[in-house]
C-alpha cells in the first residue's frame, strides 16, 4: 500500500471500540465518569465556599477588633493601632477575594476557545507575573508594607525608645527590602522550577502556530 492509500484509510478508519478497550460498555463508562465529575464539581464548590468563609470570618474578626478600639481605646498609640487593624482587615478581605477569583479562574479554564487563543491565555496564566495580577499585587504590597512599617515603628518606639525614630525607619527599610527581595527570589525560583517549563513550551507552541501567517499573507 502506498502513501495515498494509507492517508485515505486513516481518514476512513473509524475509531476502535472504545468501550471494549476500556473493558466496559460505553454507557457504563460515561455514567461512571459523570458521577466522578459531579463529585469533583461538588468538591470544588465546597472548597471555594470554605476559602471564602475562612477569609470572610478572619476579616470580620479584625473588623470587630477595629470597632472595639473605638469603644474602648487602647492605652498606647490608639491611632496607630486602629490604622494597623484597619489595614489588616483590608489585607484579609483582599486576599480572600483574590484567592477566590484565582480559584474560580483556574476551575473555569475554557477549553472551547480556538487553540491559538487557548494557548495565549495559558501563556498568561503561566507567566511569572501577569499584568492583571500586578493590579492586585502592587496595592497589596503597598498595604502590607504600610502595615508592617507601622507595626515595626510601634514596637521600635516601645522597646528602643532611647534611639531616634529615623534609626527605626532605616532598620525597617533594610529589613523589609531584604525580605521582599528574598521573597521575590524564592517565588521566581519556584516559578522557574514548576511553571517556567510549561510557560516556554506554550510559547513555542504559539510561535509554531503563528509561524506562517506572514508567508500565508504574502
Amino acid at each position: 500500500m502506498d502513501w495515498d492509500d494509507a492517508i485515505e484509510r486513516a481518514k476512513r478508519s473509524r475509531a476502535p471500540d472504545v468501550a471494549a478497550r476500556a473493558g466496559s460498555n460505553a454507557g457504563r463508562l460515561v455514567d461512571g465518569l459523570i458521577s466522578r465529575l459531579k463529585a469533583q464539581d461538588e468538591a470544588d464548590r465546597k472548597s471555594m465556599r470554605r476559602m471564602v468563609f475562612f477569609f470572610g470570618l478572619a476579616g470580620a474578626i479584625y473588623i470587630m477588633i477595629f470597632t472595639l478600639t473605638w469603644i474602648a481605646p487602647p492605652d498606647t498609640s490608639p491611632v496607630t493601632n486602629r490604622l494597623v487593624l484597619a489595614l489588616f482587615s483590608l489585607i484579609l478581605v483582599s486576599v480572600g477575594l483574590w484567592s477566590a477569583r484565582k480559584a474560580r479562574d483556574l476551575a473555569g479554564i475554557d477549553y472551547a476557545k480556538p487553540v491559538d487563543l487557548f494557548l495565549r491565555e495559558a501563556e498568561r496564566r503561566y507567566r511569572f507575573i501577569n499584568a492583571r495580577d500586578l493590579r492586585i499585587i502592587v496595592p497589596f504590597f503597598v498595604i502590607v508594607t504600610g502595615t508592617a512599617g507601622l507595626g515595626w515603628m510601634t514596637a521600635f518606639s516601645r522597646y528602643f525608645y532611647w534611639l531616634e525614630s529615623s534609626t527605626g525607619l532605616i532598620s525597617f527599610l533594610i529589613y523589609w527590602s531584604g525580605a521582599s527581595v528574598l521573597g521575590w527570589f524564592v517565588g521566581w525560583r519556584v516559578w522557574m522550577k514548576k511553571r517556567a517549563p510549561f510557560f516556554y513550551e506554550i510559547r513555542s507552541m504559539r510561535a509554531e502556530l503563528d509561524a506562517g501567517e506572514q508567508d500565508a499573507g504574502a
Partner: peptide
C-alpha cells in the same frame, strides 16, 4: 511537533480549511 499533530489530526477528520481555521484560530491561508 504538538501543534502540527493538531493540524494533521484535523486534516484526517476531513475538515474544511475554514473549519480548521475556526478551531485553531489562525487564518485559512496559514
Amino acid at each position: 511537533r504538538p501543534v502540527d499533530r493538531t493540524l494533521v489530526s484535523l486534516y484526517l477528520e476531513e475538515l474544511s480549511t475554514k473549519g480548521m481555521s475556526d478551531i485553531l484560530g489562525i487564518s485559512e491561508a496559514n
